[in-house]
């Protein structure tokens, strides 16, 4: 594949999704409930793609993504409500705060081999919750009310696209390949001159940054921030999105984030059944396809166009090896 072609791949997918979104807006714009779901889908896309950078591309197991979302949410809210800082700057402050917290959590844990990150991120999310509950100025356990509702579909969608572009540019570059190498084999990566700790921290901090951005968008959409919005179960939602979409697949995360947002909304009344189903899906996918449904593969324009051809070829034995039409990045 030529370079121009591979560079075109991501924009093409983006355009396709943009059209889909615009179509949906045109269809549902009179209904605030559907607008809300579309907004949530875009925010969840930001969350899933940024978590995928940490878990899927760099192979680290973070399960506190909602915690970073919470940091971004509360800092952005404080900026808007108490300091009357302009919306976009407030969002940026939230994202930067989450990134700084990511750095503080990441540096001690990521230099170690093993799974300490999982527990550290979980624990950190819990600490954040405790801290928020204890700050009366931001409402403590009652929640933070009266956040100006600046977020609309234009912003959520623009930021979702921005996140996808930044992260896909990153993974398709030399530093991004270093992250992939760390995921594959840390010892071998170091023997290739890759500073594993550095790239783990970079990926983790970038992921935290975008999670913080997502949090800022969310609270300016709902006009409220509440400690229960950023719990462990919320992190699990994002994890399910990347597992269903495929660890290491950006287009997969985008698709799964939108899909699961809608499903979760539909199953809102059956919360316990939803969690039971999610957990079983999680276990089943891991047992049958540990790389996630799409694995590391990206949906591409050629892939989508070629579906009929691929289906035809499936009937013939010995052709294709299943990689036709879906390409690694």
């Amino acid at each position: 594949m030529t370079r121009t072609k591979s560079l075109l791949k991501v924009p093409v997918v983006m355009v396709a999704l943009a059209l889909l979104y615009l179509g949906l807006i045109a269809g549902f714009s009179h209904n605030p409930y559907y607008m809300q779901i579309l907004n949530m889908a875009a925010i969840n896309t930001i969350m899933a793609v940024s978590l995928n950078l940490i878990n899927g591309f760099t192979g680290q197991f973070s399960i506190g993504h909602a915690g970073f979302m919470g940091v971004g949410a509360y800092v952005a809210a404080v900026c808007s409500v108490f300091y009357k800082i302009p919306y976009l700057v407030a969002l940026l402050c939230g994202a930067l705060a989450a990134a700084v917290v990511g750095l503080v959590v990441g540096i001690p844990t990521l230099r170690l081999k093993g799974d300490y990150l999982a527990i550290a991120t979980l624990g950190f999310a819990e600490i954040i919750r405790v801290i928020i509950v204890n700050i009366q100025k931001v409402g403590g356990p009652r929640g933070f009310l009266g956040i100006p509702p600046y977020t609309n579909l234009l912003w959520t969608y623009l930021f979702a696209v921005g996140t996808v572009v930044v992260i896909s540019n990153f993974v398709n570059s030399s530093p991004g390949r270093a992250c992939l190498a760390v995921r594959e084999d840390e010892v071998a990566a170091e023997s290739m001159g890759v500073n594993a700790t550095k790239y783990k921290v970079i990926a983790f901090v970038m992921g935290a940054f975008f999670a913080g951005l997502g949090g800022g968008l969310l609270v300016h959409l709902l006009s409220i921030a509440h400690p229960t919005m950023f719990t462990f179960l919320k992190s699990v939602d994002f994890l399910i999105m990347i597992v269903v979409g495929g660890q290491g697949s950006i287009t997969g995360s985008v698709t799964a984030a939108s899909f699961i947002t809608v499903i979760s909304e539909a199953l809102r009344k059956f919360e316990v059944w939803r969690m039971l189903a999610y957990s079983l899906v999680l276990i089943m996918i891991m047992l049958t396809r540990p790389q996630g449904l799409l694995g590391g593969k990206e949906l591409t324009w050629e892939g989508i166009v070629n579906v009929p051809g691929r289906l035809r070829r499936f009937r013939l034995p010995k052709v294709g090896g299943g990689r036709v039409g879906t390409t690694g990045h």
Binding site: R177, L180, E184, D185, V194, G328
Partner: peptide, 21 residues
């Protein structure tokens, strides 16, 4: 052998060029 198993042959070699980028 400790290759980056799930990456392509070309990506394996490109990673080695990482620190010269």
């Amino acid at each position: 052998i400790r290759l980056f198993k799930d990456l392509t042959v070309l990506q394996n070699v490109k990673i080695a060029h990482h620190f010269s980028a």
